[in-house]
Design a protein around this nucleic acid. Structure first.
Length: 141
RNA sequence: GAGUCAGCCAAGAUGAUCGCUGCCUGCAACGAAAAUGCGCAGGGGGAGGAAAGUCCGGGCUCCACAGGGCAGGGUGCCAGCUAACGGCUGGGGGGCGUGAGCCUACGACAAGUGCAGCAGAGAGGAGACCGCCAAUCUUCGGAUUGGUAAGGGUGAAAGGGUGCGGUAAGAGCGCACCGGGCCACUAGCAAUAGUUGGUUGCAAGGUAAACUCCACCCGGAGCAAGACCAAAUAGGGUUCUAUCAUUUUAAAUAAUGAACGCGUGGCCCACGUGAGAACCGGGUAGGUUGCUUGAGCCAUAGAGCGAUUUAUGGCCUAGACGAAUGAUUAUCACUUUCUUCGGAAAGGACAGAACCCGGCUUAUACGGCUGACUCACUC
């Protein structure tokens, strides 16, 4: 029986952890999430959350989204490879229901596994506008 | 019964499964080992009435500080409560409402300065446009001069109101009543009130969330305050050690040169550079602390109209830090809709602690309780 704990070793704890991932990550996205990831040298995946005040105005909505994300990560942790993940959100997410968000998150975990496979195509360079359209095509499939 | 006013309560309940977190207890397995426990197991805790806005007031911390003043900011009927307040309680004045009640920055424009569109003759210790009256002139239409604030007209506002007397016509010009000012008296701690007494013909209208004046209050910054521990890297200080020669000094030492190490270079020459160790202080990442026992909560009794307060007893009730307090689900309760009356479906707000309190303000679904008022009905 696998355990579904979500202890401190499964989280990103310090700003240095985060900044490592922001540097040339693999990306995946859905209409309301953006996910950045990078393989780590741990035996487990690790999760970090970034819910900007700019995107979600109310504190209790931010809390709700974080809790959903943690819960989904906790239940799916054994299907995810050993990567460090930073989950970001987009505007409008606070109007979505719990069910819908959970569905999207599950899809994301699958997607990020493919992107981080060794030998997967190198992610496109980070901050370039044209790539945005390419990404949205992938979302709609 | 309908409508309304005021105050208060609650913020669905009980399970199941999988988690998070800090507290207590334990350590068989885990890890090289140990531990006051990285970790694991068990136990019992884990968001709010507004946790929000950050609008006031305090505690706490650091900095500054003899005392006083200026500047700046705030408060503004009176009394009380309080750690304090711009809060609350009680009282007064004014306004609104049939009423229960509600609203009210409500000190001083008679210290000075300023402001007031349009209309209107005139907007401030005024003013004659129409009108009224008198005198003079007259072509008998009126004109001129003077008096007049009762009437008309303008305006948000025209320098008390009504009546009588009075007068050429009028006028606080005189009188009565009403209103106002001032001084007493009475009630009240006071604000203030008074069918109270006297006096005054009544003068200088509005605006101070206009400058201003008056009275009172205010040092600054904030838990990212502050205190402690402290890697790596770079840099600072002190001490010690460091080859040889010459010169210097009583000596320590200092200077110069060479040698040596390192870098450039295949090597020499050449050029550049100076080492090592120990300790000290500052201090970054990171960690610990501040951090939850407090103007605390509950009950009972006493004081007070009340805010509040006193005594006794009991209780400990979140302390996170890339930031926990959750997710899924079952049953019951609540509301709405549909109904074949068996049930079925949908819904549950506002919103998330971050050093802590006291207030204010704003947002709130479904509900519950208490008191009061108005109208209708019954007796």
């Amino acid at each position: 029986m696998e355990d579904f704990n979500f202890g401190r070793e499964l989280r990103l704890l310090t700003p240095s952890h985060y900044s490592r991932i922001f540097n040339e990550p693999a990306r995946a996205a859905t209409p309301f999430f953006t996910l950045l990831a990078k393989p780590n040298d741990q035996a487990k995946p690790r999760l970090g959350l970034t819910v900007a005040k700019k995107r979600v105005k109310k504190a209790c909505q931010r809390n709700r989204i974080k809790r959903l994300a943690r819960e989904s990560f906790r239940l799916n942790q054994h299907t995810i490879d050993n990567v460090d993940i930073v989950l970001m959100v987009k505007s409008g997410i606070d109007e979505q229901s719990n069910e819908e968000l959970t569905k999207q998150l599950t899809k994301l975990w699958r997607k990020i596994n493919e992107r981080c496979k060794p030998g997967a195509p190198k992610p496109p360079p980070f901050k370039k506008r044209p790539n945005k359209s390419a990404k949205s095509n992938k979302q709609s499939q």
